[in-house]
Amino acid sequence: MLKKAVLLLSSLFLSSSLQAHTLWLVPSHYVLSKPNSWIAVDASAANMTFVPDKGISLNALKLYSPDGSSKAIKDVYQGKRKSMADVQLAGDGSYRLELANPPRFMTLYELNGERKRLMADKQQRAAQLPAGATNVETVKSRSRSFAYITVNAPTDTVLTLQGEGLEISSSTHPADVVAQEALQFVFNINGKPQQHVKGVLSYAGELYRNAAERIEFITDSDGVFRFVPEQAGRYLIEASYSADIASAQADKVRESITYSFEVALP
Rank of each mutant, 00 (worst) to 15 (best):
V6D: 13
L8D: 15
S10F: 14
S10V: 14
L14M: 14
L18F: 13
T22Q: 06
L23N: 03
L25P: 02
S28M: 12
L32P: 00
S33Y: 11
W38P: 11
I39K: 06
M48F: 10
V51E: 14
V51Y: 09
V51L: 08
I56M: 00
L61V: 04
L61W: 03
L63H: 05
Y64G: 05
S65T: 13
D67P: 00
A72L: 15
A72W: 11
K82N: 01
Q88T: 11
L97F: 05
L97P: 02
L97C: 00
E98S: 08
E98D: 05
E98G: 01
L99P: 11
R104T: 13
F105D: 09
L108T: 13
L108M: 14
L108A: 15
L108H: 14
Y109W: 09
Y109D: 05
L111H: 12
R117H: 14
A120Y: 12
K122G: 11
Q124P: 06
R125T: 13
L129D: 10
G132R: 10
N135H: 15
T138S: 06
K140G: 01
R142Y: 03
S143I: 04
R144W: 02
S145T: 07
F146E: 02
A147C: 08
T150P: 00
T155I: 00
D156S: 10
L159T: 05
T160A: 07
T160L: 08
E164V: 11
E164L: 12
L166H: 06
E167N: 03
I168M: 02
S171I: 02
T172S: 00
T172N: 01
P174K: 07
P174C: 01
D176A: 09
Q180V: 11
F185I: 06
V186A: 05
K192H: 05
Q194P: 04
Q195D: 13
Y203D: 01
A204F: 01
E206F: 02
N210E: 11
A211G: 03
R214W: 00
F217V: 04
D220C: 07
S221C: 01
S221N: 08
V224T: 07
F225R: 00
R226D: 09
R226K: 02
F227G: 03
F227M: 03
V228K: 08
V228P: 06
P229V: 04
E230S: 13
R234G: 11
Y235M: 06
L236C: 05
L236M: 11
A239M: 09
A243Y: 02
D244A: 12
I245Y: 03
A246V: 14
Q249W: 10
A250H: 01
A250W: 10
S256P: 05
S260E: 07
E262Q: 05
L265K: 15
